[in-house]
């Protein structure tokens, strides 16, 4: 039991919380057809993180978070600028900005000699889920013991705070996010500026991306932004229910992804270890595949069946 509490539980918590923060925000990205903004943001935060790190010399710190937020805002403004002033198609503008900023991050990282010490590019891409350990936990009752809880790894606490922030953001601005996603013109005319709401959404996305990034790595962050929301989108037509389902899907991807990675190969008789972060994203993807095929209303299989019934009548 204590091994589970000390090594597995922290990783599960880390993975699930990271998935949850991203998965909830992802709903609005998917609805605004900005799913790839999640992709772009998770790349552009790299230079911000590197600069934040160079500034503070510690990983998982708030300066890194601030650097990432600043980098995200900078990227959004740059994309807007290139799109508007240069008359460049949005997808292309995004592509130019995020590849360049990521390249800058990589070069600065290698150049400054921080690579390999605390921060390296592979780490940035893969994350380091398994590093979370909670040595002070011995029994189940420790889960209710505030003193022991206080010894949880810093990254988990940080993600917990970020999740609270994300949930508060969505609760506070639910109505505004909804209207500005559905009908930006009406939203603007009623005084809810779609521009500012969009920008604050992106800032939240950046914060979630950075917090999740040290756990699951930058590319898996994208999976968490898109897959749970897309899964939920296929299962319901109610935005509140969709948010709820995406939350469940995120948590279950975090839980089952980790369990599969940690115990799957052993059960199959292999003595190998596989990336837990990768497995979480794979599970999120599989959940989406299931939804795409078997969702009661919008699944491909059910639709085919309905068409057949229709044709027979």
């Amino acid at each position: 039991m204590d091994i589970f509490l000390q090594f597995d539980l922290p990783s599960i918590l880390l993975g699930s919380l990271a998935a949850l923060a991203c998965g909830l925000l992802g709903n609005f990205l998917v609805l605004r057809k900005q799913a790839l903004m999640g992709d772009a943001i998770s790349h552009v935060v790299l230079p911000g993180i590197v600069l934040g790190f160079l500034f503070s010399h510690e990983t998982g710190s708030w300066p890194m978070m601030i650097g990432a937020g600043a980098a995200a805002i900078f990227a959004v403004l740059l994309i807007e600028l290139i799109r508007r002033v240069g008359n460049v198609e949005p997808g292309a503008a995004m592509g130019v900005v995020f590849t360049t900023m990521f390249a800058a991050g990589v070069v600065v990282l290698e150049q400054s000699g921080t690579a390999g010490v605390h921060l390296d590019v592979e780490h940035a891409l893969y994350g380091n889920l398994e590093s979370a350990i909670w040595l002070d936990a011995y029994t189940l009752s420790d889960l209710w013991n505030l003193e022991v809880l206080a010894t949880l790894p810093e990254s988990i606490k940080q993600l917990f705070v970020v999740n609270l922030l994300v949930i508060a953001f969505i609760m506070l601005f639910f109505k505004e996010l909804k209207i500005s996603s559905f009908d930006p013109l009406l939203s603007a005319s009623l005084g809810f500026s779609p521009k500012w709401l969009g920008l604050s959404l992106i800032v939240m996305v950046a914060i979630a991306a950075v917090a999740a990034f040290s756990a699951v790595g930058s590319i898996l962050v994208i999976a968490m932004f898109i897959c749970p929301a897309a899964t939920a989108r296929l299962l319901t037509d109610n935005l509140k229910v969709q948010l709820f389902i995406s939350g469940i899907a995120s948590l279950s991807a975090g839980l089952f992804g980790y369990l599969l990675a940690a115990f799957g190969p052993g059960l199959l008789g292999y003595e190998i270890s596989v990336s837990a972060a990768g497995m979480i994203a794979v599970v999120a993807g599989l959940q989406q595949v299931l939804a795409m095929l078997f969702a009661p209303q919008y699944g491909v299989v059910m639709r085919r069946r309905r068409q057949k019934v229709h044709a027979n009548i």
Binding site: L36, L220, C227, E271, G278, A281, V282
Partner: peptide, 30 residues
């Protein structure tokens, strides 16, 4: 075939495929 738009489709494919690749890379390592 689904109600998802192209951006979501691209995001899904790139992240899921990459994740599978990562899992395989760790398999290779061990």
């Amino acid at each position: 075939h689904t109600r998802l738009t192209e951006d979501a489709a691209i995001g899904t494919v790139l992240s899921t495929f990459f994740a599978v690749g990562m899992v395989l890379l760790t398999v290779i390592q061990s």
